[in-house]
Design a protein around this nucleic acid. Sequence first.
DNA 1: TCGTACAACTAGTACGTACAAGTGCTACGT
DNA 2: ACGTAGCACTTGTACGTACTAGTTGTACGA
Lengths: 348, 348
Amino acid sequence: MRDAEEAVQPGITGRQKRPTMSDIAARVGVSQALVSLVFRNQPGASVRTRERVFEAAEELGYRPDTAAQLLRRTRSRQLGVLFTMRHPHDVDIVEALYPAAEKQDYHVVLSAMVATRDERRAVEELLGLRCEAILIIGTESTPDRLAVVAGEAPVVAINPRKRASGMDVVRTADAKGVRQAVDHLTELGHRAIVHIDGGSMPGAAERRRGYRTAMRRHGLAEHIRIIPGDYTEESGARAARDLLACDTFPTAVIAGNDRSAHGLLTTFLRAGVRVPDDISIVGYDDSRLAGLSFIGLTSVRQDAAEVAELAVQAAVERLDNGRTTDRDIVLDPALVVRESTGQLRSDA
Amino acid sequence: MRDAEEAVQPGITGRQKRPTMSDIAARVGVSQALVSLVFRNQPGASVRTRERVFEAAEELGYRPDTAAQLLRRTRSRQLGVLFTMRHPHDVDIVEALYPAAEKQDYHVVLSAMVATRDERRAVEELLGLRCEAILIIGTESTPDRLAVVAGEAPVVAINPRKRASGMDVVRTADAKGVRQAVDHLTELGHRAIVHIDGGSMPGAAERRRGYRTAMRRHGLAEHIRIIPGDYTEESGARAARDLLACDTFPTAVIAGNDRSAHGLLTTFLRAGVRVPDDISIVGYDDSRLAGLSFIGLTSVRQDAAEVAELAVQAAVERLDNGRTTDRDIVLDPALVVRESTGQLRSDA
DNA sequence: TCGTACAACTAGTACGTACAAGTGCTACGT
DNA sequence: ACGTAGCACTTGTACGTACTAGTTGTACGA
């Protein structure tokens, strides 16, 4: 652990310069090119030499320089991922992207969108880092701004607010998911089923449409009732308070997503309304929250792993297979029944 | 929007090569070096030329190449941030790091720790990208593994599980925070105050200690009662169930963090226990969850913006001011009183 | 004996930018 | 008229790696 004997300039910090391939080459007594070969696992070096190179690398504490690699390589094999950390389901997708990308020999680069850092800046960063494609999770961008990005690199929009041309889209058949929820509730005997809307959030329009259609199909057109919301817990809580203040109380609610379902559920609990005895609640996304034992939210599952897999695949198809036409990939959702929904009670 | 007239090789994708400074230089009729000057906003170029360079850059759709900049520059001015997305409070800190770093003219690079990607790999990535320092949020790493990292770059541990030498630590005075919680509850008349533990999670040991000390100070040694947990919602729910099954029911609970408080609170609500009428609950972290109207959790605030600011500052001190001694930065927490705590009811 | 084939290597250059060290050119003071 | 200063620019090289096009040396077949 003693400092290297090398008499480098003392520098301000005293931290020695990081070793390069040339340093390894010098130590082993070969050329830098050969060291490069060894690290890339290419043929052209003897077993003996390979061993010595790795040994020397270990001793020197060598670490490949990503910047140099990126600069030199023709392909960066990097996928840029734009995300926020606010929605649990988005976090799940980000996590799932790592193994999905790795399977295709791509590398994931994250760029967070936060309050002080809008989507444009985040994209700039990714493109500056030579990402070959951009995956955007739940974007709020306008189609024309996204189009600009798509002009520079293939874009895959995962659950976007609005569909846009010039890019691939991966999303779930939200209408179908909501229909399953309605089917489930009607089977349990419910008729007064309310929907809490997600406003302009990703998928909200389709979920709303799916709700309307499914209700009509069950002959429940007169029970259609949509309460405005925006996918937040607070909007769910607000909806619950509105319902409590109202004289026509439904027997079931389909929330726009799990977060609003959470606000709804807890507000009901606080008010002494029992779930599912007094009212059944269905969420959407099957996020981590839904699975918690004390929440036990019946929800519509959108498989994060599958979404990630397909998104990466879409990007790879453009990058490696030369596809140039847009793809709209729609996944079938699945209803996950938990404890927040139950048989309609005869006295309700 | 028509494709450039340039007859580049058709390539597999047909996407044209990205323009470089030399392309701009050629178009304007100056040298690449001058273009570099202009972009770095250095003196040595006429106003007229600057304008023309920017114009040409715009027309060509030029974007600086981060890899090349990184490779050439002596300093990368990048701070690597290791984080998970599982704890809301950590997310807050990540968000706050952006403006804090920007203020010091540093750039933030994220590296997520997820199931399929351990801390070691995430650090490798950051160091490979020439990050000058590493900020780790809520690390679970062992001190000796961290020491290895610290050998390569300054490390700032934000709310680490355990303190380690060779790096800076930014944390809150957790014992003090819990003491405030105990003070608050005793003022409200509570005596049977239980603590739900965080096991080996960051800060848990100190919170436990703070609880014990504060209870004794209030002459409540006999009421000390610690229920095991691990900061998860489920552990909070489990604790609630345990308490419900038990014949000695406390009048107040201090949870190890907001997540476990959440599990506790909701499980109580489901069981018909009213909060705060039947029992008062205090969380820790003052995360987004705590502030939700239907949760309204009294919690101990750890200011994310301040934490971020100090963490960046600690790194900068090492990098720019040559500090080599360790710093242990302790922030004072503040109790945020909400609706989950209330006066002890006489009939309790 | 020579040519050939192959393994194991090296030389050299390119990637796009930053930066040090120049080179002209004009203006200006004496 | 001459020296000098300063502006606006250029030349050249370095950063660390990848990759092409060699170059050596040895074994082997005819």
